[in-house]
Simulated scan of single mutants.
Amino acid sequence: MMKASTPKFILTLAIGLTAVLSIMMTAFATPAVNSGIHNVPIGIVTKNDDMYQKMAKPLDQRGFDVKQYETEVAMKDAVSDRKIYGAFEMSASGDMTLYKATAASTAVAQALETIGQKVVDQQKVAAKEQIQGMQAQTTDVTMLKTLDAKLQAIDGKSLRVQELRSFPSRDSKGAGLVAGALPIALGGWIGSVAIANVVKGKRQKFFAAIAFAITGGLGLTAVIQFGLGTFDGNYFITSLGAMLGIAATAFFVLGLLEMLGNGGLIIAAITLILLGNPLSGLGSAPEMLPAGWGFFGQLLPPGATGTLLRNLTFFDGHAIAMPLLVLASYIIVGLGLFFIGKKSVLVKDEKEA
């Protein structure tokens, strides 16, 4: 006859589940409520220090991390190297140009365009007020015609936008990459649990995880690139990045399962799904999450995998050192736990024998 659970066990279980629920709520809600501009790196193209200070100050106050670039070429190199998300340039005639990289972050690109347009609108209002004041103080017909022409020219001014790195036209907002965060986390977790429960033998589980990473990477990239049209880079190179991300997830989960059993499964779920998915920054940018959360999200497999795929596909492989290091660390730690777990099982079997 099965022994009934004690009140102490029930209370402990309830408290544990409440803690998991609280972690889930914090991880999902905090970024959504507090997302915004948090030291997002952008540039200003100008050789004039006074102009730079004038433009940088309001942007600093909005939360941007502003850098000065003396030439357009230097600025574009910085965008390609993933050092900045975009830049503003003001011409001698007062025309403003925005250089944006939508593929780096749709949310940041939209924010920069909104800010740039607001600046242009403010300039137009100020210029109109100045000219209208001049019109009120003169009766000279020639002067009035000249001022009228200037007013019309001001009305025609708008923010000039130059796209530096865009998503393909089939998915111009990169929705496929954003949606891929959950499959990367949940799919890797589910696949690893299936391998742990269905495949018999430690060596067989090891090779099954490798096979899953290879086929999963090829399949995930195929869906995003050929099915959704989000990627347009080298399919096989991008697939290698996806394989690494899935391998990191798979071996991390398998290692925790071998070491801790069901307890490891809970840790993996919290790390990869409850925290990794909402903190990946794929929906906005790591710098748009609350301070510290964005960086932490890049230390988890979903965030590192998303950043790796983005930089491989759209930025010629620049700034991939950190995500590679993060994913390699999860693979190494996972394999270590996997083999340590194997030894502990052998010791247990010998004692029972």
Rank of each mutant, 00 (worst) to 15 (best):
I184K: 00
A222C: 06
K157I: 06
T142R: 13
N197Y: 12
V120T: 10
L309R: 05
A250E: 05
R170V: 04
G94W: 02
M1K: 08
N262W: 07
G187I: 07
L11K: 13
M25Q: 05
T313S: 15
M90L: 12
T6P: 05
L112E: 03
V79L: 06
A32L: 10
M134R: 14
V333P: 00
A56M: 04
Q137R: 10
T313K: 04
I15C: 08
A126Y: 14
L240N: 01
G188H: 05
G261C: 07
S172N: 11
M259H: 09
P7L: 04
I42R: 02
Q162H: 08
L244C: 10
A194G: 13
G227E: 05
S284Y: 03
F207V: 14
L272W: 03
G201N: 14
A101F: 05
T6E: 10
L299T: 09
I42M: 09
L218S: 04
T313H: 06
M55D: 00
R82G: 01
I267S: 06
S93G: 02
N262T: 10
L346H: 13
N197F: 13
N234F: 06
L256E: 02
Q130E: 12
Q137H: 11
G216N: 08
I340S: 08
V125A: 15
L324G: 14
D349Y: 08
L59F: 08
A285D: 14
S158G: 08
V326C: 01
N277D: 15
M51C: 06
L337S: 02
L17C: 13
E163K: 05
K124Y: 13
F251W: 06
T307D: 13
M322R: 14
P31K: 01
V141R: 15
A19K: 02
I131M: 09
L274K: 01
F251P: 00
